[in-house]
Design a protein around this nucleic acid. Sequence first.
DNA 1: CGGGTTTGACCTGCGC
DNA 2: GCGCAGGTCAAACCCG
Length: 212
Amino acid sequence: MDVYFENPNPFSGVNSNIPPPLSSDFINLSDYLELDDDLVAANQDSNWSLSTETPESSDRAGSINDINVINQGFSDEIETSINNNNNNMIIKRKGRGINESTVEVSPRVTFRTRSQFEIMDDGYKWRKYGKKFVKNNSNPRNYYKCSGEGCGVKKRVERDREDTSYVLTSYDGVHNHESPCTSYYTPPAMSLVYSNEWQLQQQPSANSSSSS
DNA sequence: CGGGTTTGACCTGCGC
DNA sequence: GCGCAGGTCAAACCCG
């Protein structure tokens, strides 16, 4: 399994105390995780997705390109900060003669998994809301939303157009709730990268096992 | 009957 | 302005 952030982790240094991905009952993620530098580089222009309203575009997803466009009128002052409630990045922009505005952006994480199944249980409950055949890919792309109340996290699932034995799963946003399936990690399993979406808890004492 | 899936229509951004 | 592509909506449908 390959895992890569579509951006260099924007929160490195901010949440560096958060441990890396956890193990599940079926796959020890830490055994498979690796950063794909080519893909990170190839996706530098789509580092972020907008998750809240902006004066220029309300309630829609976008990319770093949108931010660049939006920022054109705000080139003088851009402040960034972290929303401690959900780990999103807050970008506050000011400009001459233009009202101050703020956008909040969330990280996008993509998993590349060799699997005959397109749907893998990640502990969250998803509702499918769309299916689309995209250009140059004979396999459909499926769109899912988290079923959690008020949770706007989205997931995109499609087969890799170059090698259909792989499934590409993209997560957009950060859950505002814990996984219905709480997982635990053990310190020796720590390794390379982590997602801000994962809700991690220290494994409880000896004779209690991982929940499912 | 409620919740999830399907699928065509619609919306929006982007390139020409 | 137009057409294309990607993303979303929502009514109809399915299933437990």
